[in-house]
Design a protein around this nucleic acid. Structure first.
Lengths: 207, 207
DNA sequence: TAAACTATCGACCGATGGTCGGTAGAATGA
DNA sequence: TCATTCTACCGACCATCGGTCGATAGTTTA
């Protein structure tokens, strides 16, 4: 049987299903056939829209990063919230555990998904750094941050936040987390050059 | 034709060839057949020594991490060198670009090798943190470091050093490097709580 | 010299990512 | 209304992959 749909619709169907599968089963562990079965299309149709399985992955990562960026932009724009809070929230909003997809976080970042993970990290850093650069500049102007290498510092903070808390690179016990979070916040304070304790309040936000 | 060798010899042959291939071509891109052809054995022989291609990868990563750790131990032991220098050198010695394998660095850390990369990062962090913890404690005792979360800070520094300069996660221009290195050193100073400029001398070491 | 053990072989397997020639059906033009 | 064109779709087919397994050559042991 043949069901015809407009191009863009089919493409989105494939992306939606693939994303769900990649994130829950892992990229390598998801076969193109798995996707075909669920979307209910033939192999030829899949390769009519995408040149390869990897191209689908790239498109999905772009989507994920864009969604995170949109969240960050919305948060950073709201000047009624103190600057430090906005920055922290924008960083935390990158975790896909927020908004919509919930148990995804644990699934997405497992060894089986190293490729997804690495491509995501790269893309996220590239996209998010400019946003935070503006915010940090605002903090420098307001005399709450004092640092010489804003761009490099932002990259480091984004990288650390992601690697320490989103990826499962660190296999930590539950009991370790408070210390890890406190350590991260303390180092973030030092790197940004805030006055000591400026980020202390965020301890409980990591629940 | 059948050439019989002692078990351990064959195993090392396989590991040696596999490592070369994984690092240059990438793990996924290297087929078991590629390895067989070079070592000149049959498929059955390969699987007589290793349960899977992935088990070979794990063994190789363990080797690489162990080599880096040995280098770090040797460096940290030499008390004739100032503490800060020893620590920096120990971190830098993790880069496989040092000692023996030379052009490997660029090859090892490419998108195709995400799995190798991720497993390596995890294992390296686990193995190196305790070593540096001792060294940093020494610095705290000598009043050159001032920090509240030594373990977490070491993890962050190792992670940053690796992600920023060894992986190709950041696609930087050559011209960016000086600023990136300066930024990294400045943040390292702040995190460790040294007096400002304590690590300035290391700028030229990244050549 | 027979038996037992170890290391090796390569044919074979199911699954995978990807190709390709063909075609159904909607849109277009006469 | 019918012929043409174009788009979306089909599924048989392919090379290659990681991995299995029963057979066996070569070495030790009894």
């Amino acid at each position: 049987m043949k069901t015809v749909k407009e191009g863009e619709v089919r493409k989105q169907e494939i992306l939606l299903v693939a994303r769900e599968l990649f994130v829950t089963k892992g990229y390598e562990q998801t076969s193109v056939n798995d996707i075909l079965k669920i979307v209910d299309i033939a192999k030829g149709t899949f390769y009519y829209y995408f040149a390869s399985k990897e191209e689908v992955l790239a498109a999905i990562i772009l989507d994920i990063v864009e969604e995170g960026t949109k969240r960050a932009e919305r948060i950073l724009k709201d000047k009624s919230v103190p600057l430090v809070n906005r920055i922290m929230m924008a960083i935390m909003a990158q975790s896909p555990e927020f908004e919509g997809s919930e148990e995804i976080r644990d699934e997405m970042h497992k060894v089986e998904n190293a490729k997804l993970e690495q491509l995501y990290t790269k893309a996220m850093l590239k996209r998010m750094t400019p946003l935070l650069e503006v915010a940090v500049a605002e903090g420098v102007a307001a005399d709450v941050f004092h640092l010489d290498y804003p761009r490099e510092t932002i990259e480091s903070i984004l990288l650390l936040g992601h690697m320490l808390f989103d990826c499962n690179i660190m296999d930590w016990e539950m009991a370790d987390y408070p210390a890890k979070i406190q350590g991260f916040l303390a180092n973030m304070e030092r790197m940004l050059g805030t006055k000591a304790g400026a980020l202390e309040d965020f301890l409980q936000m990591f629940a």
